[in-house]
């Protein structure tokens, strides 16, 4: 993708004339603002950018971006985006989805887009609830959640979105949250720079149907103790004085430890480029609920063959080998005979 000739744009150039219609106080506003502010910095033109979404509150997103966009059908955005990216590897393609859209009805498309490593950026707004249909539990809701459809508590075990993505062979996996615009923008920037499918889980507050789901972690006063910032090549430390860290035990599992107890050299150095996904998977599962220290940032960021380009390369190679298609030649290719 050439960035040289792209005209300078501002947030205004990326903002459509449509009135934003999320509930007042919704976490989606913060994400939209982060994206609209970030886009001018990415060196791409609005006309070469496509936002595709499914159905759900988050999926209204494309209407608010002054780019090409499609508000498609429930769960299918990754499949449609795969078609767009495969037809046109020159485009910058983003998928906006949610925990219901991406992990329930559209789970199959999500995992296959990640497996194929199509060059699309998938932003999954995880609010652990169905908002648009007014408050049913979602595939990321915790067991026991009381909602309109589970009046005595849900009995479904939830998905961990990052585990799903890593299990689906995703080459880029990250987590951020709706209260930290700068962190979102750095995460989205890295996702955009990645050649291949990028998967970003965004902890997003639904202030109407699931208010405060992530507050124990993402509230400003809790962040130092509850958010673990992953920085490539750095020891994984957190706490007000970075006095706590993540260590790989002799049992092979990851543990949260006091640095003073084990020594800094025992703290795990974060390696997002590690070809093997096991440590990223362990980090993704470090927090077993929404009330314990939780890693944020880029978990995995590796290079492997990108689907749309590989498909395109085969088309180019065939054209070089066989020349441009000749219809007359094709029609005669079974062998012919002449009458009269």
């Amino acid at each position: 993708m050439s960035t040289a000739q792209v005209a300078v744009t501002t947030k205004k150039d990326w903002t459509s004339d449509q009135e934003v219609r999320w509930c007042p106080g919704c976490g989606d506003y913060g994400i939209l603002l982060a994206v609209q502010q970030l886009m001018p910095e990415l060196g791409v033109a609005p006309e070469n950018t496509v936002f595709v979404s499914g159905i759900g509150c988050s999926s209204r997103f494309p209407y608010y971006m002054n780019t090409y966009g499609m508000h498609s059908i429930h769960g299918r955005a990754p499949a449609i985006a795969t078609g767009i990216a495969t037809a046109r590897p020159d485009l910058d393609v983003w998928v906006i989805t949610g925990d219901g859209d991406g992990l329930s009805i559209g789970g199959n498309h999500l995992i296959h887009a990640l497996r194929r490593n199509v060059n699309i950026n998938i932003l999954l707004f995880n609010n652990r609830i169905y908002g648009l249909t007014k408050g049913q539990y979602s595939p990321t809701s915790e067991v026991g959640k009381v909602t309109k459809s589970t009046p005595v508590g849900s009995v479904d075990a939830p998905f961990n979105p990052l585990s799903v993505a890593l299990g689906a062979e995703a080459s880029f996996v990250a987590r951020t949250h709706d209260l930290d615009r700068k962190h979102m923008q750095e995460t989205f920037r890295a996702a955009h720079a990645h050649n291949g499918a990028s998967f970003v889980e965004i902890y997003q507050n639904c202030n109407v149907f699931n208010d405060g789901q992530f507050s124990d972690i993402t509230k400003k006063t809790n962040r130092e103790n509850m958010m673990i910032d992953l920085v490539h090549g750095e020891p994984i430390l957190f706490g007000p004085d970075r006095e706590r860290g993540v260590m790989q035990g002799t049992d092979g599992f990851l543990h949260i430890v006091e640095v003073a107890d084990v020594g800094l050299d025992q703290i795990l150095i974060h390696d997002e480029k590690n070809d093997r996904p096991s440590l990223a998977f362990a980090l993704a599962r470090l927090n077993d609920d929404d009330h314990s220290p939780t890693p944020f940032g880029v978990f995995r960021n590796i290079q492997r063959s990108e689907y749309a380009q590989a498909v395109s390369d085969q088309v180019v190679a065939a054209s070089e080998r066989r020349g441009p298609g000749d219809l007359g030649e094709l029609l005669a290719s079974n062998g012919t005979w002449t009458v009269g």
């Binding site: 496509v50 498609s72 499949a79 449609i80 795969t82 078609g83 990216a85 037809a87 498309h109």
Partner: peptide, 17 residues
Amino acid sequence: AEDEIAAVGVALGASFA
């Protein structure tokens, strides 16, 4: 594609493009 739904999704995405 991974299923029939994705197959037509891919085709429609390509048409859009």
